Amino acid sequence: MADAPNPIRETDEDARTLAKGLIAAARFGALAVIEPETGLPTVTRIAVVPGPDGAPMSLISDLSSHSAALAANPACSLLLGEPEAKGDPLTHPRITLQCRAQRADKSALRAYYLGLYPKAQLYYDFGDFRMIRFQIDRALLNGGFGKAFHLTANDLGR
């Protein structure tokens, strides 16, 4: 019996450009963490913006369960890429980032973050909110049907 063909394509400049574009355009993402109490995965939708260095960032409340999960284990995944209004959602590009969550200087990033996400003005200065930067270790890009790639942090300019 012949081996099945590898569905992962060789990473090229088009894949790198698409991946960087998905990260830069993201304003929402699905964050996956491991709950410390159960050891089970959980996923939540979060607001996302690209940081000044291009790495995704999010403003997260200490009251959220995913904040506690990230404090216990900073390893996480972030799915970016929203399906368009028309067509099969599985044919639209998306990227899964395998990351490590790191606290960032919330006060230094205030003007930058609010410039990209002005509605956050309502809660940005609440004491329970922290800025989290997602340090990308590697990525899995699905550029549409038959366009799968593995990317390294170097592929994404990290």
Rank of each mutant, 00 (worst) to 15 (best):
L151I: 07
A139M: 06
L109G: 00
G157T: 06
R94T: 05
R130P: 00
S64H: 09
C76G: 02
R100S: 13
R103H: 15
L18I: 05
A108I: 06
T152M: 08
L40D: 09
Q98M: 14
A19E: 05
S107D: 15
C99S: 13
R27P: 01
S77G: 06
D53G: 08
A55H: 05
D105A: 14
A24D: 15
Q121I: 08
L79E: 02
V33M: 01
H66A: 06
S65N: 12
L18Q: 13
A111E: 15
N73R: 09
L97V: 05
I60C: 13
L90H: 10
L116K: 13
A153F: 07
R110Y: 09
L97Q: 07
N73S: 14
I136Y: 11
E10M: 09
G29I: 00
D62C: 08
D12L: 11
S77K: 01
L114F: 06
P41V: 01
A15Y: 10
P7S: 09
G127D: 15
D88S: 12
T38G: 03
A148M: 13
L80Y: 01
V48T: 01
L80D: 03
P7V: 07
A19P: 04
I23W: 07
D53H: 14
A72P: 04
A139N: 06
A2S: 12
F145P: 02
P41C: 01
R130T: 07
Q102T: 08
P41L: 07
F28R: 09
A139D: 09
D88I: 02
V48E: 06
A101N: 03
I46N: 01
A101D: 02
R133M: 10
R130M: 04
L22A: 08
P89S: 14
E35D: 14
L114T: 06
